[in-house]
């Protein structure tokens, strides 16, 4: 955002240094691109080997009529027919709408809570070590276990959730939270936020660590209050980190699968697009249509990523200007 807030990237300083060392620098430049590719090579090789094949295969399958229980069909090439089918398929459209609703709700709550938790973790106070460890606990429990645990918690007979609310006087009798559409949505959101807000907190915390203490000190001396300091120093400094964290959370939330599959199995209008894609692939053995849905997830998420990328601008890569 505002480069002026970051004296470290002061262009004049850079130019001064660069001017002095120009000769030496030039010899480095010639090798720079080569070195860059060399340094990226291990990552690229591993991504090419493991990730590219599954993706290309899915694209390819999505262009075929391929229902494994019908090998007699010969799996013909049918172009974009599977994609056209998505838009005529009410279940697919509903699942996309649900997934968007789920993604927006959870990611914004996670941002809010994660940011608050990061600010706490960043503070120096007694017992901070324990608090930091405690906040990360939800993230540390395997999803398959925690989803089961939460299903237990929402149980209408012996669930902790009912017990706590009942004792607090919020409800006057135990409720079957997962039996209604609103209840299921709420339960899923709570569980997902509980589980992944720590992740957000940890990343934002890392961003906060990049903010130099002296910036706050000088701002304090200048008489800036807490709000002002947050708005003019903290926010601009962690903005990129927050956006990257949001981006990855969005990608994950949009592909939500385990949580829903354990807690509701897609009942009560909680079928996410990943669940629907999974059903078509693995349950109906419709590899063509299932792959098309997987590719659709890919495309939607790609568009979301492009939007994030736009917001990030050139900040991530073009330090050189």
């Amino acid at each position: 955002m505002s480069d002026s807030a970051n004296p470290l990237s002061d262009i004049k300083l850079k130019e001064a240094i660069m001017g002095k060392k120009m000769k030496k620098h030039n010899s480095m430049i010639s090798t720079e691109a080569r070195d860059a590719w060399l340094m990226m090579a291990p990552a690229l090789i591993i991504l090419l080997i493991v990730a590219v094949y599954p993706i290309i295969r899915s694209f390819w399958l999505s262009l075929h009529e391929m229902i494994l229980t019908d090998p007699g069909s010969g799996y013909p090439f049918i172009g974009l027919k599977n994609y056209i089918k998505i838009f005529q398929d009410r279940k697919a459209v509903n699942s996309i709408i649900f997934t968007l609703k789920f993604t927006i709700t959870t990611v914004s709550l996670e941002l809010l809570i994660g940011f608050a938790a990061a600010l706490i973790m960043n503070k120096a106070f007694r017992g901070k070590g324990l608090v930091r460890a405690a906040i990360l606990i939800p993230w540390a429990i395997p999803t398959t276990v925690s989803a089961l645990m939460w299903k237990f918690i929402y149980n209408d007979q012996y669930g902790l959730f009912n017990d706590v609310l009942y004792r607090l006087g919020v409800i006057d009798s135990y409720k079957a939270w997962l039996s209604t559409s609103d209840g299921s949505f709420m339960a899923l959101v709570i569980t997902d936020v509980w589980k992944t807000a720590p992740y957000m907190a940890l990343l934002i915390l890392a961003g906060l660590q990049m903010v130099s203490e002296s910036l706050y000190e000088s701002a304090k001396i200048d008489g800036a209050g807490v709000v002002k300091r947050f708005y003019y120093i903290t926010l601009p400094m962690v903005k990129n980190t927050v956006i990257v964290a949001l981006l990855f959370r969005t990608l994950d939330a949009f592909r939500v699968f385990d949580l829903i599959s354990v807690m509701t199995g897609g009942a009560n209008k909680t079928e996410s697009i990943a669940i629907y894609s999974y059903k078509n692939l693995m349950k109906f053995l419709d590899f063509g249509y299932g792959s098309a849905l997987a590719v659709l997830i890919f495309i939607v998420v790609f568009i979301i990523s492009l939007i994030y990328m736009k917001v990030l601008g050139d900040k991530l890569t073009d330090m050189e200007g």
Partner: peptide, 15 residues
């Protein structure tokens, strides 16, 4: 960056 990111855009089950 986009190419690298695209690896995390696919549903796990399809991979």
């Amino acid at each position: 960056l986009m190419a690298i990111l695209s690896i995390s855009m696919f549903p796990t089950i399809a991979t």
